[in-house]
Computed example of a mutant assay.
Amino acid sequence: MSTKKEKKTQESKPKKQEVEVKEEKDEDSISILTHPFTTLYYFVLVLVSYVKIGLKFILKHIIVISVVLAVIITPNFIQGPHLDYYRHAEKVGYFMAYWIILGVASSIGLGTGLHTFVLYLGPRIANITIRAYQCNALPEFVPSKWDQTYHFNHCPENVERPVQFLDILLSVQFEAFLWGLGTALGELPPYFIAKAAAASKKKIEELEDVEAHKNDKDLMSVAKRLIYNNLQKYAWITVLLCASIPNPLFDLAGISCGHFGVPFLTFFSAVAIGKSIIKVHIQMIFVIFIFSQGHVEHALQFIENLLPFLKGKLSDMLEKQKNILANGAVSEGEKPLIGQLWDYFIMLMIGYFLVSIINSLAQGYYEDLKNEKKQKEENKKKKDN
């Protein structure tokens, strides 16, 4: 009898373990779609923890923060000739913050990335390029370049010389540099997380994955090993090259630099130069070239010849868009179909980005809780032994 009972218990144990593993896997894949309430619960806990950290920081540096805010805000309430300069500086400050934040959003992405170059900076460069070639001169921003709700003034009458490619490049260089700097700042979290993990001797999943697949011959594994190995010998130049081209594996470079203790200035200087100077200029040159005079018309003609049912429609849309750029803001009813579709696309991208933030933060918080629980269990076992 005893042997039968033992067999039954032994047979039941694996089944119980399988259930536990399955449940754990289900919990590991929590998301808004699969576990909406659980995900939102953990997301709220993360927000509460961030609020607590923020309040602690403010209370710790309350005097410095109060002085800085007073210096920034007080001139706004004092009448005098300085107000014009203050208003201009305020606009420039908002302009800089706007493009830097968009760059950070594009880079940090929390696992997905909101591609703000495609959504914001690229269309801005394209609009300026189309307008510049239409006027044969750089367009004037009304009320100014620093306002987010700007439109272009009428074409200037007396043009000294035809607009050059370099003129357009220089006219959008400042916002492009700020956006690139934002993308560089967005690469810092993986570096600092890996550095903290190395100091506490924690394992990093991405680096373990590289070691586990060191014999694989597929392109992705080879690329990962190439970055991983070269960062140990030539950190600065490797980071610079990785940052200077569109590179989905750049997070691995940041994590490896943090793990191997590459100095912060070495890492960030290479990232900043690569992303805010080299990479962003490649992107700018590409957009300006594509939207230069003649290139758009040739592209549309090719598409219309390929798809006859679009004959004339795309050209009309482009002409309408040029008129909108020339005459400034228009009512919602006059907005072309392509503009409306673009707005919907932006809304979908932003919605997807927000959902990915909620999922990533909730999953990360749950993972931390699970690791803490495992650590407590291991410590308890050690004490019992």
Results as ranks from 00 to 15, higher is better:
G274I: 06
H298Y: 11
H298N: 15
H298V: 12
I278D: 07
K279A: 07
G274C: 09
G294M: 12
V271M: 02
K275T: 15
N305P: 03
F291V: 00
H281K: 14
A299W: 01
G274N: 02
I285M: 01
F286H: 07
I278M: 12
L300E: 03
K279C: 03
I277T: 13
F309H: 13
H281R: 13
I303H: 00
I277W: 07
S292M: 12
H298E: 13
K279L: 08
H281D: 08
Q301G: 05
Q293T: 04
V287L: 05
M284E: 08
H281G: 09
Q293E: 07
P308Q: 14
K279V: 03
I290Y: 00
K275D: 03
I288P: 06
E304R: 01
F291R: 02
I273K: 06
G294P: 04
H298W: 10
F291K: 05
L307Q: 09
V287F: 01
K275S: 10
H281I: 11
L307G: 02
I277P: 00
F286E: 00
H295A: 14
F309M: 14
F302G: 02
F289H: 09
P308Y: 00
H298M: 15
L300Y: 05
H281A: 11
I303Q: 02
Q301F: 08
I282G: 08
F309V: 15
F309A: 14
F286N: 05
F302C: 05
Q283K: 06
K279F: 04
F309C: 15
L307F: 10
Q283G: 02
V296I: 13
A299S: 11
E304I: 13
L306R: 14
V271N: 05
P308V: 01
H298D: 15
I282L: 15
Q301L: 11
